[in-house]
């Protein structure tokens, strides 16, 4: 048994290098044990360093369609511990021509494509729900912001280039329970998360909460439409979410109030406008 230990930062490029090398040697999927490096200080895995004899197999050169490479690399950011082994098996079969890319009747490929979709959704939600708070002074030439976010999958690396392109003129940190992305003076880097405390609210948050309350139309209450797109698991890190229960509670009464209110007399201004002498 070969044990391949992958780093926690740069996991996917490392997997790709190992997969190519293993395929070139003709190592079959069942003869590899894939694992992630333990976080610093954790005990190492029992299986490490116990090589077993392997049955010989013909070498394989991994050439795959581009769309397959991109989907595979996305799916590898899933949290499923089996993903490295399953994907190695899939790429061997694809390269040998035993499996057609896109064939959803193959259970392993179907699983991979489902995981790719889950990862893409998680990345999309991270792009949507990260909330920055200012931690520097607003007058600084490059302003500094920080955010705490809890994704379902280890996606900080693929999700961060979006923020680098969008927030190019400021410095920022996004910390998650595993890794932290840091963007300073235009350079993006990753490190193990040390500080797991969310940053303190800043002054603009009160304005945002005002906006959130007032853009809501109480006559159109549709709670399930909201929760299907913004599931409750994200709420604890959204500065506006604690307003939601009260907005829901008072909505029916506010809507009825509008319907039942008697028409009012137009203000004097309106009469002047109507006569065209403003």
């Amino acid at each position: 048994m070969r044990v391949i230990s992958l780093p926690r930062i740069g996991t996917v490029p490392a997997w790709r290098r190992h997969a190519r090398a293993l395929a070139a040697e003709g190592v079959p999927p069942g003869a590899v044990l894939w694992q992630l490096d333990a976080p610093e200080g954790a005990p190492s895995d029992l299986f490490a360093g116990a090589p077993a004899p392997e049955p010989p197999a013909p070498p394989v050169t991994l050439t795959l369609p581009r769309e397959a490479v991109s989907a595979i690399e996305t799916a590898l950011h899933h949290s499923d511990p089996e993903r490295f082994a399953r994907t190695y098996g899939i790429v061997l079969r694809l390269a040998r021509g035993d499996l057609r890319w896109g064939d959803r009747s193959d259970p392993a490929l179907h699983r991979l494509l489902a995981q790719e979709k889950a990862v893409r959704r998680d990345i999309h939600k991270m792009h949507a729900f990260v909330r920055f708070r200012e931690i520097g002074t607003p007058e600084a030439p490059r302003r500094t912001f920080a955010a705490w976010f809890e994704p379902d999958h280890p996606i900080v690396e693929p999700a961060s280039s979006f923020f680098a392109k969008r927030f190019g003129d400021m410095d920022w940190i996004i910390a998650t329970p595993t890794l932290t992305a840091r963007f300073v003076s235009g350079t993006l880097s990753f490190e193990e998360t040390r500080d797991t405390a969310p940053p303190a609210p800043d002054a603009t948050e009160a304005l945002w909460r005002t906006y959130f309350t007032h853009i809501f139309n109480p006559a159109r209450l549709m709670v399930s439409a909201m929760t299907s797109e913004m599931p409750r698991k994200y709420w604890k890190n959204l500065p506006e979410a604690d307003l939601i229960p009260e907005m829901i509670r008072t909505a029916p009464e506010r809507a009825m109030g509008m319907i039942e209110a008697a028409p009012t007399v137009p203000p004097k201004r309106a009469e002047k406008l109507r006569r065209g002498n403003v």
Partner: peptide, 26 residues
């Protein structure tokens, strides 16, 4: 995008809904 560090913001991809209010609108 603002990768050059001289501006703020990006556009042109698929839009992102940053929050949802209880009327289900983004």
């Amino acid at each position: 995008n603002s990768k050059d560090g001289k501006g703020l913001g990006s556009a042109g991809g698929s839009g992102i809904c940053h929050a949802y209010t209880p009327d289900g609108r983004c």
